[in-house]
Design a protein around this nucleic acid. Structure first.
Lengths: 235, 235
DNA sequence: GTCTATATGAAGATAGAC
DNA sequence: GTCTATCTTCATATAGAC
């Protein structure tokens, strides 16, 4: 069996408890509690779940361990709170780009750049790493993250594809799979290489180049039969 | 600081030590050692690095802890050996498909299917998970895996793209990025969702569908201007 | 709520016999 | 090389004073 499992805080109880949403204001937090959450995020994301000790978190938060245990049931509980606090970092906002009235190329470039920059950032790399490694022990956590970040992002882009296809500006068959694969292509190998610490942080120019490449390929692949007005050269 | 670091077996010493290659025959292993490695792989990949205890490994290998320590310097050492043993699972063989004389579509379908099935398998998921989470503490391990699996796979496909482009059968600009993004698109979101335990193992039919979708998109995007003989409808 | 001090247990590593 | 038994360290969690 895996490690011990005294207080499996996420077994079933909080299944539906997704991440806090942008507008959600929770009851004001005590300063100590805020300090704890801040410190815990820092330590967990730096050292991983097992590597993080409650003592280190208490030290960094400048509180005693007992205080820490008065705010959270235990390590599992604290960990879940931290990951949920951070999971919406994987959310990429599609609507605002749609609302800006961008055409497909400009929208995909904007969304792609935002997405890839975010995914390659130190913060999200850390969340990704710890999430992937601990997901098996925290079944509800994966769903919470999926519903707070990647899920809505993909759905948003798929909706856009469906809309553009209806307008005849794109020709996307399965919009959900297409959105999935577009995001996948963006990550390409660079995200993995950085995950396993082979590459350092990618230069902005490389990120831009890869986004452009992926967008070009996507548009070329999903060009409608008869483009409405003009033909693009880059395809 | 991260955990303790008494014997950082991979700090620098074995940087160049890549995974064993298919043909490599090492000095014959004692049965005990083989049992240890088998058990260690099972326990590490199931429970993660921190979750795996030397005692559990010894128990599963049916040896004493002391025996275990007579074969390996410590937990870090054993872990590195196991991951290196398993890392070439991420290698996807391109050459054999090339040698089979397949056309671009058939080759991409074959390679893509092999790749995605492998990446979605329980074994590779486990390797991926533990690798990603422990890479920061084992700097040399990431490079070893990259050089044993993903690196050669990507290079092989990129070479193929270059060759086909030279022949006028494909039109691929940056072959390395294209190969990267093709593999990325194959993984799409399903790999991630399985990583965070939201989805169960994908059905073979879904895997096939996603491979076909990615291949169609890739070919449509990289069709040469004037196809040599016939035009494909699926694009 | 918050602290200091401590109980408890788990796991990495080793001593010494065979 | 292999075992049994043990040492040591350290992290989670709590008791009890303020």
């Amino acid at each position: 069996m895996a490690i011990k499992a005294k207080k499996q805080a996420f077994a079933a109880p909080v299944e539906a408890l997704a991440c806090a949403h942008p507008g959600t204001i929770l009851p004001p937090m005590s300063p100590k509690r805020a300090a704890i959450e801040k410190a815990a995020a820092s330590v967990f994301l730096r050292d991983g779940f097992a590597g993080a000790s409650m003592e280190a978190i208490a030290r960094e938060a400048k509180v005693s361990k007992a205080t820490l245990y008065s705010h959270f049931q235990g390590k599992d509980d604290l960990f879940g709170a931290i990951v949920r606090n951070n999971c919406q970092q994987m959310l990429v906002d599609i609507e605002s780009s749609v609302a800006a009235g961008l055409g497909p190329r400009e929208l995909l470039l904007a969304v792609g750049l935002k997405f890839l920059k975010k995914m390659m950032s130190d913060e999200v790399m850390a969340v990704y790493r710890i999430l992937v490694s601990e997901a098996p022990r925290f079944p509800a956590l994966g769903r919470a993250v999926q519903n707070a970040g990647p899920g809505p992002s993909c759905n948003g882009l798929a909706d856009y594809f469906r809309h553009q296809t209806a307008l005849g500006l794109l020709a996307v068959g399965d919009a959900d799979v297409a959105a999935d694969q577009f995001f996948g292509a963006l990550l390409g190998g660079i995200h993995f290489r950085r995950l396993i610490c082979v590459d350092a942080q990618a230069k902005p120019s490389e990120i831009k180049f890869r986004v452009a490449t992926a967008v070009d390929a996507f548009l070329a692949a999903h060009q409608p039969k008869a483009p409405p007005t003009k033909r693009r050269k880059g395809a």
